[in-house]
Simulated scan of single mutants.
Amino acid sequence: MSNPAASELPIVVLDAIAPTESRCHLNRRGSAVWDVESDGSRYAVKLGYPIEATDEWSAQPWTALAPAREGHILFKLGLKGVLYGEWEQGTWNIQPWREGPDLHDLWKPVRKEGSKVEPHLDVALSCAQALADLHRRGWAHGDVQPAHFIVGLDTTYLIDLALAHGQWVPDGYDFAYRGCLVHYEAPEISRAILETGEAVPTFESDVYGLGASLLMSATGWRAVEYPDDAPRSVQRQAVADGKRRHVSAPGKLGPLVDAMLSHSPSDRPTIDEVISALS
């Protein structure tokens, strides 16, 4: 559900960035993203707003805080050009725009029926390196999925850090971690959320998420078996129970991804071991 108020850039953002061109890239489920040019540079502007309750979804007030939380994390990581603050319905951030296809789009030829194209290991390596860089800085991403790896000409960017954990976040912008897109959620995360409603993302759960992302991007199949229209709780129970599909990534990537998707966190390779295997 989109928010009409987020279909225009707030005055506070206009004052901060003074755009020469802008277009709304998306506006749905608590977040709007704008593609903005200013002073010859290109930026992503994110607006967060609360999700109201419906017959299918409970209210989600945390989405209003997500842009400022991400802005704080990006600032702590030393990313230049980052600003964040508050607007009348939530928070916002400004960050550099990342140009390029995401992992899932890039590997579309690999998924084509009858294709003999194997996934490029250098792309998988670049994704692992981007995740490893975040881990070395003390953060677990918490929302690893194919759409969050933007494969540029020279660099692969890991975006959408609003759910990252590992270091201090201001209380006014912080919120409990309640999981991510279940297709890429590690069993221990799903289990904790089913039992307590909350979890804490880890480096090990990120490795699982990367493995699930590589599998989905290379094959079109998610790692765990459950009905497409299953409720979120049923999906999580299948993940927690380890109901793996009988599908592997093609070529040399297969055994590594299978290891990354191990049910027990201690059985998964570290991100440095993933990099070593891909190198």
Rank of each mutant, 00 (worst) to 15 (best):
G100M: 12
G71D: 01
G71F: 04
R42I: 00
R98S: 10
W57A: 14
L106N: 10
G90H: 03
Q89P: 00
W92A: 02
A66Y: 02
Q95L: 05
P50F: 09
V110N: 10
P96A: 07
W34V: 04
P50T: 03
W87F: 08
K108Y: 13
S38C: 05
L106H: 11
D55V: 14
G100T: 12
Y49C: 09
N93S: 15
S58N: 13
Y84H: 14
E52Y: 01
Y84V: 07
L77P: 04
G40C: 01
L103Y: 09
E88Q: 13
W34Q: 06
P67S: 11
K108D: 12
W97P: 03
I73C: 02
V110K: 10
A66E: 13
P96I: 05
E99W: 10
W92T: 02
P67R: 09
R69L: 02
E99T: 14
V110I: 12
E99G: 02
H72P: 00
Q60K: 13
W87D: 04
E86T: 12
W107K: 10
L77Q: 03
W57N: 14
V82M: 05
A44N: 08
D35E: 14
V45W: 02
P67Y: 09
K108T: 15
P50E: 07
L65E: 05
Q60V: 15
K46C: 03
Q95R: 14
E86Y: 08
K76Y: 00
G78F: 08
E37I: 01
G78Q: 06
A59Q: 13
K80V: 04
K108I: 09
R69V: 00
Q89I: 07
Q60L: 15
T63D: 11
G78P: 09
G48H: 02
Q89V: 04
K108F: 11
Y49T: 03
Y84L: 04
A59R: 14
I94W: 06
G100Y: 13
N93Y: 00
P61N: 11
G90I: 02
L47P: 00
A53I: 06
G81A: 09
A53E: 15
S38F: 04
Y43D: 00
W92F: 15
A68L: 03
R98C: 12
P61L: 10
A64P: 07
W97C: 04
P96S: 05
V45I: 13
P50C: 12
A53K: 14
V110R: 10
W57L: 15
K46Y: 03
A44H: 01
